[in-house]
């Protein structure tokens, strides 16, 4: 095996790791993106909502016995997916009792359209969730253990008996599930009547009311979906990544970068923004020391913001 083949294998391996990571980041970003896109609310608590989702999946898997009942492999996936509806309801309640007080029709016309209050509320929510998590769950990292996270599929060899890439099974499955959830959400938003009404409420809340669309309800639904989607992504991450109550902070930066990269307000853009971040993080390890992974992400981020401020998928349609 010569140098070229070794390099080729490294590149392919980094590429596949990037795709696996990017798919999950993409799903997280979609959750944040839909909340921002519909409600124009910057939710600093998104990372911590994801953390709650991770623990939700963890306890479904362990305490509620889904892991024993369905077997560790299937159980891990089912636990992550079940997190969705549970966290949807959690999101609805958060919106009903907290977020709706500083967003939507109620704050239209206020100074800064209520952004200051939103910032403080979501940041406070993040702190309470993270520290509440510390009280409830403790600081010892946990993860959903199954044989999947410690075994891999071998793809290849491509050249003779050389150059193969190894795909961690847990990450591979997480990617597939994440793509499926993102695609389902995409069809919901673009094709279904309800999804279109969410976009209408985002585009022009006042006109949406003239159509008979209950904008407050649309916002609540968007917040619920956004929470659920990010939580499912968290549940999937939990199947291969040990986490503790402060895990949200590690991911919320990635989510923000991804959403802005893709173009604020674009839900597809959010997915691809997350994907790009995953790819850059992993490909950067080929040429840079691992500590500089995130530096590479932000260099790309700055480049995009500099060259295309509306983001990769951002549209600049003038408001009528």
């Amino acid at each position: 095996m010569n140098d070229f083949l070794i390099n080729l294998e490294n590149v392919l391996q980094a590429l596949s790791a990037g795709l696996l990571l990017g798919g999950i980041y993409g799903l997280m970003c979609v959750g944040l993106g839909i909340i921002f896109g519909v409600m124009r609310v910057i939710n600093f608590g998104q990372g911590d909502l994801m953390m709650v989702g991770m623990y939700c999946a963890f306890y479904l898997f362990t305490t509620l016995g889904i892991g024993n009942f369905l077997g560790a492999e299937v159980g891990a996936i089912v636990a992550a997916l079940l997190t969705g509806p549970i966290m949807y309801v959690f999101g609805l309640l958060l919106h009903r009792f907290l977020v709706s007080r500083v967003t939507g029709v109620r704050v239209a016309g206020l100074e800064g359209e209520g952004h200051y209050a939103q910032l403080i509320l979501t940041l406070g929510m993040a702190l309470i969730l993270a520290n509440g998590g510390l009280l409830l769950f403790g600081s010892t990292p946990v993860s959903i253990k199954s044989s999947l996270s410690s075994s891999a599929w071998e793809v290849g060899p491509f050249v003779g008996e050389f150059v193969s890439i190894f795909v961690n099974k847990a990450r591979g499955i997480a990617l597939v599930v994440s793509l499926a959830v993102a695609a389902a959400l995409y069809f919901f938003i673009t094709r279904s009547r309800l999804g279109k009404s969410l976009r209408a409420a985002a585009d022009n809340p006042e006109a949406a009311i003239y159509m008979g669309i209950d904008v407050d309800k649309a916002h609540r639904m968007a917040f619920g979906i956004g929470t659920a989607v990010t939580a499912v992504a968290g549940g999937l991450v939990a199947s291969y990544y040990p986490f503790q109550p402060y895990v949200g902070l590690e991911f919320v930066i990635v989510m923000y970068a991804g959403v802005v990269l893709g173009g604020l307000g674009s839900i597809i853009g959010a997915f691809w923004g997350g994907m790009i971040i995953g790819l850059v993080q992993q490909l950067a390890t080929l040429v840079l020391p691992t500590q500089l992974q995130n530096t590479a992400v932000f260099v790309v981020f700055l480049l995009v913001v500099f060259l295309r401020p509306q983001g990769l998928f951002g549209v600049n349609v003038t408001r009528a």
């Binding site: 009547r193 209408a200 022009n204 006109a207 003239y210 159509m211 008979g212």
Partner: peptide, 24 residues
């Protein structure tokens, strides 16, 4: 109510705008 300044949904297609009208 056909509002002042039209207020169409700019990022929805023409057909989708009409569909939103048919929300009732």
């Amino acid at each position: 109510h056909v509002p002042e300044g039209r207020q169409v949904f700019p990022n929805l297609s023409v057909l989708e705008n009409l569909e939103m009208g048919a929300w009732t």
